[in-house]
Nucleic acid binder design. Structure first.
Lengths: 138, 138
DNA sequence: CCTACATCCTGTAGTTACTACAGGCACAAG
DNA sequence: CTTGTGCCTGTAGTAACTACAGGATGTAGG
C-alpha cells in the first residue's frame, strides 16, 4: 500500500475507514442506490473520490440522527435536485423530530412501569414474584 | 359461528381476538417454539385452552414492555421451570431497564441535536440550509 | 340441502438495515 | 515465490413479524 494514499482516489476500504461506515455497508448502499456506482480500476476495484466521501458522510450523519434510509433518500433527492428550500428540509426534520419525541415518551412510560414492578420484587426471596403475576394479567 | 363461544376452547382467530395478538403472529410463535403446538380438531384446526390464553397474554405483555423474544424465552423458561426465584426475574428486568434507559438517553441527545439544527432553518427562505450543511460535515 | 362467505390450513417471500460468509482473483512486500 | 491483505460477487442470516398464494373447511341463511 502507498504510504500516502491520494485523498482524491479512495479504495472501498479507504472510504470505509474515513467515514466509519462498514465496508459491506458501502457496497450495500450501492446496491440499493443510495450511493452511485463508482468507476472501477482495470482489475475491477471500486475507485471513490471526494464527492463519494461527502455523500457517504451525509448518509452516515443522517443515519446517526435516526433518519430511516427512506428519509435519507428523500433528503438526498432534495440535495441532488439542487433547488431545495430550507423549508422542505425543515419539514422532513420536524416530522422526524416528532417521531423521536414519540419514541422517547413511549420508552419513558415503559421505564416507569418496569421500575415500578421491579421495585416490588427487589427482595429476591419472595416466592410468588409480583412481576410475573403482572405479566399474566392483561 | 356459535353465539357463545366456549371460553375454554378457542380457535386461533378467537385467541387472536382475545389477546390482541395478530393471528399470523400466533402461528409464528408456535413455529419458533414460544407457544406450544396445540391439539387439533378433526379437520386439523388448532384448539386452544385457558393455559394457551394465559401464556400468550404473558408473551404479549412482555413484548409490550420491550422485552425481546429471547428475553421472553428466558422469562418463560423460569416460569415453566416453576422453581424461579423473584431474584432471577428481578435481574432480567433490571438488565432490560438499563437498556431502556440507555435508549432514552440516546434519543434525547438526538432530539436535542435535531431541535437545535431545525431551529436554525425555521425560516423556509434561506437558500443554503444549515441543516444540510451540517449533514455534510463529519 | 345448497350456496356464500368467513375462517382455517401450509408454506414461502417480503420488510428494515445491515452483517457475515463462501469461494475466488489481484497485488505488494519480503 | 510465497504470504498476506484487500478486493470481487452473490447468497444467506439477523429480529420480529406481516402478507400473500392456493386450497380446504365450517357455518349461517334461503
Amino acid at each position: 500500500m502507498a504510504i500516502h494514499e491520494d485523498v482524491t482516489v479512495l479504495s472501498i476500504g479507504g472510504l470505509s475507514k474515513r467515514t466509519g461506515v462498514n465496508l459491506e455497508t458501502v457496497r450495500y448502499y450501492e446496491n440499493i442506490g443510495i450511493m452511485p456506482k463508482p468507476p472501477r480500476s482495470a482489475a475491477g476495484h471500486r475507485r471513490y473520490d471526494e464527492e463519494h466521501l461527502k455523500r457517504l458522510t451525509f448518509v452516515k450523519r443522517s443515519r446517526e440522527l435516526g433518519f430511516t434510509l427512506k428519509e435519507v433518500r428523500a433528503l438526498l433527492a432534495l440535495v441532488d435536485g439542487g433547488d431545495y428550500s430550507c423549508g422542505e428540509v425543515h419539514e422532513l426534520t420536524l416530522n422526524h423530530l416528532h417521531e423521536v419525541r414519540q419514541k422517547i415518551a413511549d420508552l419513558q412510560r415503559l421505564e416507569a412501569t418496569l421500575a415500578d414492578i421491579s421495585d416490588q420484587c427487589a427482595d429476591g426471596t419472595i416466592p410468588d414474584c409480583p412481576f410475573i403475576e403482572t405479566l399474566f394479567r392483561a
